[in-house]
Amino acid sequence: MPLDPSFIGRTYPPTTVYEVGREKIREFAEAVGDANPAYLDTDAAKALGHPDVIAPPTFPFVLTYRAAAQVVNDSDLGLDFSRVVHGDQRFTYTRPVRAGDRLSVTCTIDSIKSLAGNDILSVRGDVHEESGEHVVTAYMMLVARAAEGE
């Protein structure tokens, strides 16, 4: 069964606040092997004009991937996650994520397409600081491969 296109434009409730910690940024930077001092050293980050250490460019995915579970697990939408692969990913930044941010993600289904039996689902995650300031938007495209014999 292809995904129901009437879900296009659906927006899910904002996630509960995620507080970005310095040590979480450090853990992520170490996991990608990146010793850029802007991620690890508050003084170095300040010298670049940031109020505190900043997170690597792909860090927001930690939050937006978790938030997208609302969409992926929406039983009304009925996406078969066992057949899903990550097709593409894009971020547009108003500013980098930084330590101390209290962030919430709002997910919206931007598009649903069917191509050769595959479902192509585009989900946008708008990330805002508690103050209302926009920080980053993540665009994720998922491909649910056609089931066997379909």
Partner: peptide, 14 residues
């Protein structure tokens, strides 16, 4: 760049 905060947009296809 030196400053990773100068990235304004970044996208890839897998």
């Amino acid at each position: 760049l030196g400053d990773p905060g100068a990235v304004v947009e970044y996208g890839v296809r897998f």
